[in-house]
Nucleic acid binder design. Sequence first.
RNA 1: GCCCCCAUAGUCUAGUGGCCCAGGACGUCACCCUUUCAAGGUGAAGAUCGCGGGUUCGAAUCCCGCUGGGGGUACCA
Length: 515
Amino acid sequence: MSDPASPAPERVRVRFAPSPTGLLHIGGVRTVLFNWLLANGQAPREGKSGAFLLRIEDTDRNRYVEGAEAGILDVLAWFGVDWDEGPDVGGPHAPYRQSERTALYQEHAQHLLDTGNAYRCFCTPERLQQVREEQAARKEPPGYDRFCRDLSPEQIDANLAAGMPFVIRFRAPQEGETVVHDLLRDDMVFQNANLEDLVLLKSDGYPTYHLANVVDDHEMEITHILRGAEWIPTAPLHVLLYRASGWDVPLFAHMPLILAPGGGKLSKRHGSTSMEEFRVQGYLPEALMNYLALLGWSFDGETEIFSKSDLLEKFTLERVSPSPGTFDYQKLRWFNQYYINHILDLDDLTLRVMPFVAAADLIQPGPYTPDHGDFARVREATALLKDRLETLAEAPDLMSYFLRDELEAYDPALLVPKKGTPAEALRALEAVAALLPEINLGDEAAAEARLRSLADDLGLKAGNLFMPIRVAATGRTQSPGLFETLRVIGNARVQERVAAALAALRVLEAAPANG
RNA sequence: GCCCCCAUAGUCUAGUGGCCCAGGACGUCACCCUUUCAAGGUGAAGAUCGCGGGUUCGAAUCCCGCUGGGGGUACCA
């Protein structure tokens, strides 16, 4: 008895329902994205009204983490999605925090009790544990043995009178089958004999996910449930709960799981797993959104770059794949690099780089606007370095020789080109030092002409003159083009740095060569 | 163990019976550009479409079995 393909609803109401137990997992963010795109992109395109709401599922007081909710909302806003209803903005179905809705769940649990769809279970956690152990010893599948399913009214009254704590369990059918229609997978058939009598209301009066979720999705008029595939096994119970309550069953679409590179769950061991971590590591929300959209969804198999508005224009739930995907950190880095180098304009990129270089004390702290005193300097450095920035967090290291007056200590041996000698490098840099006061580094072409002819005069290959200069000016063997680099560092600092390099080189040359 | 989901190159994917001895992207390799490193350009390698049976004139595409991977099996979500 599959649900007759319900007529396409005129409105699409979807939700993301995180529990405030810590940081927001990257997989959750992908679910948010697809929900948001369905409500704000596909639905309007199909002439339906769309709404995306946020609901906080804080029914587990043991795992509740102070501040987690605020963190989740904050990082979602940073990511670039918004919500029409939620704990912070309110809405017609407030409150949007389950801990503030417990009366509603208790009421409904009572209703299920009254209609015979649920029963009180007085089993202690200890007994439950013991049952599981015995089942394991007998190699039987674990599960509640339904000990309290058919207690007599007298027994129940006696237990109640004795003040025994209890939970309320769902009375799941034990025969027949339940079909869950999934928008990505079609019908999934479950034998009711395998179903469990789930706990609906805990002994502390709080609901479990199963109850709260079904009650709220109904109350909040949710039309499409987009959630992680880890919920597939309990989906038939949810369907049964809707039916037992006499409610319409929403449409389900279980998003494919995101796996770790080696297989299994994505965990710290493989790298970052939370949105907050990617944020501090300097990933752009645009790149994250683009990468995440393509993990499980595709447009034509060819197009790779999608802006937020492209996604709004092109996303369709039907093109989400049901098969799990592996999270590829390398490809995320590529997207990030691509957005930094080719998509963001320079002013925008500069503004995003600033907090990172400020955190490394390379510039004054914010606010970060084009009026910030260091904006122009950072902008110049960014212009030269953007093609090698994979994440914003790399900026402080890459830019330090532009933004700081003093060079960090470096090995003077680097001043000597690979096939050259210290004496040669010394001679070259001495000539450079002598020439520098006459060169206007602001004119790259002229500076290049002067230094190239100097190389000729010295009988050196250009590279063997340029490398010592590069190292003297930056302390590194790798930098952007030499002449643009010198231009941005400026004549005065270049001269100081060359003088310092000369001194170091003299010490090096005087020292006994030992390989 | 039991239940369920999934299955195209190392990874993300296109492909819905013939246009596919399989297309795009990341990664890898080579070359070009070049003052270094990147970026960029060009090109290459890499998939018996997990395996075995069917159905069909014809299958990556449909069906069955197997195998593999993953998820669930809490008074957590």
